[in-house]
């Protein structure tokens, strides 16, 4: 067990290091001189050269990587070129939008998908199951930005229940802030819920076919009790795995939805930073998201192993 844990952790760290190398390399070959970008079009060649030296851009590649990685580890993320404030402050502000958004979307997804999956599994082959799974198929196929547009016109423009976009900040009360996260969360949750409902259903069906469930039923336990007490608990493993992966996906996958609703979240920050070539912000946010994905995967891996000891031996 310990060996397995250690190996998983070592792999996670190795992946993180490799990822940092990739990010560094990609940004290294990006056209455009950061010093020139900072100084603007009218700067002289000497000024640019001076800043390059000052920024350490003329150091050897390896030295620069080590310096950069060291800064990342100590959370010294540098200053944004466009906002001229520390990147860490920017990221902190934006996480306060993206994290709640991802969590709300995840909760919505689970609240919708698990009952639907349960219902479908218990009514397998019936009209209700077909309808639910048909709906899930459509849910997976709808582009979320298109769905978001429909939601905006229905709930914000026509019914005027929620704002069409923007974010008032947590400082102005919890309710207004939550209200403005509602539509984006729904838009994000729909395809995730569709996937999750399908996974829940097939996991349950697999479990229901296991011998011990049959035994339980044979002993005369009511179907409902079997479903709730035995089947659901066992089927939760794959469901939780998918939820974990979805959380990682949602944290980064909000990029387009945050643009549609112009929410000041991480996705929008990184999108704007890319278009404005604010590479210091891009690399920091990408590394942060990569670290989050790796961390979530690690947690999922470990919890999986704890729940199901058989897996420890296997890859």
């Amino acid at each position: 067990m310990t060996a397995y844990l250690l190996k998983r952790i070592a792999i996670a760290i190795a992946t993180l290091v490799l990822a940092s190398l990739v990010v560094f390399a990609v940004l290294e070959i990006v056209p455009g001189d950061p010093a020139r970008l900072m100084l603007g079009m009218n700067a002289s060649a000497e000024q640019v050269e001076q800043l390059r030296t000052q920024m350490g851009l003329n150091d050897p590649l390896l030295l620069r990587y080590l310096h950069w990685a060291g800064d990342l580890l100590t959370l010294d993320l540098g200053r944004s070129l466009t906002y001229s404030v520390p990147v860490l402050d920017l990221v902190r502000e934006r996480v306060a939008v993206s994290l709640p958004l991802a969590l709300i979307a995840l909760a919505l997804s689970a609240v919708i998908a698990i009952p639907v999956g349960l219902y479908s599994a218990s009514r397998r082959g019936h009209a209700g199951d077909t309808l639910a799974m048909g709906a899930a198929q459509i849910g997976v196929a709808i582009p979320n930005f298109w769905f978001a547009l429909m939601l905006i016109y229905l709930f914000a423009v026509w019914l005027r229940l929620v704002p069409a976009g923007g974010f008032p900040g947590w400082g102005n009360g919890i309710w207004p802030a939550l209200k403005s996260l509602l539509l984006p969360a729904v838009a994000l949750a729909l395809p995730q819920a569709a996937i999750l409902a399908r996974v829940t259903r097939s996991a349950l069906i697999d479990v229901l076919n296991e011998d011990y469930i049959r035994t339980a039923r044979a002993k005369g336990l009511p179907y409902r009790a079997v479903l709730w007490q035995h089947a659901l608990r066992n089927a939760m493993i794959p469901v939780l795995t998918i939820l974990g992966l979805q959380f990682a996906f949602l944290l980064a996958g909000t990029i387009i939805i945050e643009n549609v609703f112009y929410l000041p979240g991480l996705g929008r920050l990184v999108f704007q930073a890319i278009t404005q070539r604010d590479l210091i912000v891009v690399e920091s946010v990408v590394m942060l998201l990569v670290a989050a994905v790796i961390a979530v995967n690690l947690i999922v891996d470990l919890s999986y192993a704890i729940v199901d000891p058989r897996l420890r031996g296997r890859e």
Partner: peptide
């Protein structure tokens, strides 16, 4: 693992 660690859509946009 390395490729999976990168958020796909965000990386594609980048």
């Amino acid at each position: 693992d390395l490729v999976f660690a990168f958020p796909a859509l965000l990386s594609a946009i980048m």
